[in-house]
Amino acid sequence: MLRKLIKFDLKSGARIFLLLHGILLAVGLSGRLLFMNHLDFSEATPALVSSIVLFASLTLFLLMAVCFCTWLLIAVRFYRNLFTGEGYLTWTLPASAVEHLWAKIISGIIWYTLDCLVVAAVILMLVTGQNVTDAYSVIAPEVTAELGMPLSTFGLYLFIVMIISCFSSVIMTYFCIAVGQLFPAHRVLCAIAAYFISGLIIQAVSMGLMLLLKLFPGINLSILNGEQLAQYMFSAITLSIAIMFAVSAAEYAAVHYIMKKKINLL
């Protein structure tokens, strides 16, 4: 049953997802062929710098927009499929609440992971031209010294954190929507309120823990050398992942309870 639920969930969102990410890949490829490959780094002119800044800003905006749309797809699928008219079909399928929840979690994680992979592929596509790698090799030792590790390793760590955060992001989205359904009216608005309130609480707790563990980024960061910076980053990332797991576990328990005991389609 779980497999069937996941299959239909992925199928129903596939068209929008493929369209969005197809466009992103096409734009990435065009950017590489029409812009990045024609950059000449031999002379750092103001025109070169401003064009790179403009292109990077646009690319960043596009990547963020696609990530947002993926998140929206996951959130809307969950909400529409379980809590609107479609819920009358979904909740009368011979599947348990836990199966419904895990089907949504797994399909959400699949969407997010694919999104991360496409985003990473587009970034790699843009920065792996011969002219860019040659230009980077000039400043590579400096960057490595500053980061305490090669840029590629740093990027890989960021990618891993991004993949891990897919799970917590999906659970948090579902948690907020499920909490919104506990209210008798204005359920979408209540879900948005739950998102901001829970986000605020998590931020406050994270900051408190960072202060307590002396990991709060601040006054001493500028005088760290590369090795210390890398160590700081590992500690901060480890703490973030630990908080992420703890929060996700609590949110999962809440969603599980709501879906099992509090489903009321109006």
Partner: peptide, 9 residues
């Protein structure tokens, strides 16, 4: 009917 269908608690 909704209670019997399990869409209401």
């Amino acid at each position: 009917i909704k209670l019997a269908a399990g869409v209401l608690q």
